[in-house]
Nucleic acid binder design. Structure first.
Lengths: 353, 353
DNA sequence: CACCACGATGTGAGCGCTCACATTGTTAGC
DNA sequence: GCTAACAATGTGAGCGCTCACATCGTGGTG
């Protein structure tokens, strides 16, 4: 299965082509100062020998590995995973490798370990997904001697937001605002909120957007209840919400999984959706369209965020090298997908007894 | 943000400790032939300088990078993602790095590109997730000069299965068998099957297990309908199934997303679950418990499969080195989780008009 | 007491590449 | 026609580590 002949090296190619190893290096690196015929000879020799440049040796000599690191947390949530793929796609399109380090607990120790692991693999820079306050704090505290870009969390909205950290993110605030506004436009007196865990930055951004839309419309701001992103927590949070205010007609839920749980709680409570209560989610997971009823939700372009993160990181690594176009706009817009879980506010009813 | 002092190297440590660079190397590598006092001196010097071994130089000298590659397909399906994390966890526990290469189309060209990318990063071995026939074929055809272990797909059940390829996988066949058997035990005359895409190996294993359980029980084997794993396809496949056999009472669906779609189709058709029709899924995605009704499904230990894949790969890379215990059993068992979507077959009814 | 074996240490070469510089040959310029 | 400039090429020294080997001291053996 493994061929035993040692892989050809630059000198082998040079010998066969009748040039020096340096000339081979020039050809491999696309240097302009190689004459046509020489270049052809070298290319032919490379082809014949099946030569492939040894990236490790190159990395040792240049002090650049051509690999990016990604720090991610141990979550199979839709967002992080999709972002990871976006990063990989963008990196590999640029000829860069991607190493991952999964952090399994939000302790600064675990974060440092992950960072160390990447550093030991001598990545040229890291894309960090730090969705929680604590994770972010740990990460910025132990800021590595490595160019780092944050994706998601840190940057989530805010008009004049001037983050000190290089970051890209989705416009969570805007998405939440749009979702809330959508419900208000449907005639609901106000919109309740089933929030994400409050130590998650994304969750705060969504609360903020919801709040902003409410106050802009002069609608009262009910207490919100926070879950932990899981369907289970959405279920019980919805029950809490219903108990507190049986007359509610519209809920903006901070993610689709929790919305799934909320739908179940509403069903069990005998509320029809969207007849009695309208529900809007966030994320647009692939299944959202097949919830009962199909979920109105806010779609995020995670892959695009990953792509921009890579571009930003590259700008950081090679300040004025290949400019690769202008720096990407850091805030990726969202899109509200109106499906069937949201509808007009129920007509005037007799007050609760 | 970046310190400018060049990182200390082995020689710096050696000088400070008053020993040779080789002795430092011995300490770093845990060689037994270093006296206590010397070792202490070296460790102190390392600590003082903040020395960290340069992995690139080491890789160049040893021809080993200490990095594993993972080939994965561009899918956010629950299984592959969880497996990826399992691989990362296992690798990092062993001090190995993980590089990923995402294949975005199932063409042998794309597969080769991904493989090349990993090879250029000089990974020591690769864990390949090749869920489809074509992907597997492309991968085995272009088998790299690299130790490779397959995870999922290839190995999916079968008693005396003797795969030529080093592989680990979940006992899909057994899981499907158990799911089907569960429904038969509930008194259903037979069990219909809503299958996955037939070019996916996992899908075939599940069909096989279903078939085996049916024939073992002497139950008739209805035609099955295949979807594409999505909720949408589950929805329409369920409608097809219902149209073909309005009297069906039990369905084994090849994954949870499709089961979600199937539940919706059943709901729309006025069938209650599990009153009229029992449904069993596969995978146990986190949301399955909050489907309506909570889904009976087969849980796979993806992370465990990832772990075993790494162990197997290591055995392949270092044949008789650190034995790291016996080779793992390649077939990871599944577990049937009985929830509320499956129940006793409906009592005898008058035949359809 | 000479001998050898063995543990502890040091020495130098080399992994495969790129860097900085030296060396050619060629053409342009006055 | 002689120099300056430049393109095309070659040379050697590292990058930071490990490998194979050489060297030194020590203690047990007959």
């Amino acid at each position: 299965m493994r061929s035993d002949a040692p892989a050809p090296v630059m000198t082998d190619v040079a010998r066969l082509a009748g040039v020096s190893h340096q000339t081979v290096s020039r050809v491999v690196n696309g240097s302009p100062n190689v004459s046509g015929p020489t270049k052809a000879k070298v290319l032919a020799a490379m082809e014949q020998l099946g030569y492939r440049r040894n990236a490790v040796a190159r990395a040792l000599a240049t002090r650049r590995s051509g690999t990016l690191g990604v720090i991610t947390f141990n979550t199979v949530l839709h967002g992080p995973v999709t972002t990871l793929y976006g990063v990989e796609r963008a990196a590999s399109a640029l000829g860069l490798g991607v190493s991952i380090a999964v952090v399994d607990q939000i302790t600064s120790e675990a974060v440092v370990r992950a960072l160390t692991r990447l550093q030991d693999q001598s990545v040229d820079g890291v894309v960090a997904m730090a969705p929680q306050q604590d994770a972010l704090r740990a990460l910025t505290a132990e800021l590595p001697a490595l160019p780092t870009v944050f994706v998601g969390g840190v940057l989530g909205g805010g008009a004049g937001e001037a983050s000190a950290l290089p970051a890209v993110g989705t416009d969570q605030r805007g998405g939440a605002h749009a979702a809330t506004r959508h419900l208000l436009d449907l005639g609901h007196r106000t919109v309740h909120h089933l929030a994400g865990p409050q130590d998650w930055l994304d969750a705060s951004w969504r609360v903020e957007g919801w709040r902003a839309a409410l106050s802009a419309a002069g609608a009262p701001e009910p207490e919100f209840v926070a879950g932990d992103w899981s369907a289970r927590s959405g279920y019980s949070a919805m029950r809490t919400l219903l108990a507190a205010d049986p007359g509610l007609t519209a809920v903006f839920v901070a993610n689709d999984q929790m919305a799934l749980g909320a739908l179940r709680a509403l069903d069990e409570a005998g509320r029809s959706v969207p007849g009695d209560v309208s529900v809007v989610g966030f994320d647009d997971v692939p299944e959202a369209e097949f919830f009962r009823p199909p979920l109105t939700t806010v779609s995020q372009q995670f892959a695009e965020a990953g792509r921009r993160a890579v571009q930003l990181l590259l700008d950081l690594i090679r300040p004025h090298d290949t400019p690769s176009g202008p720096s990407p706009r850091p805030l990726v817009p969202t899109e509200l997908l109106v499906r069937r879980s949201s509808g007009p506010a129920p007509g005037v009813r007799s007050g609760v007894p």
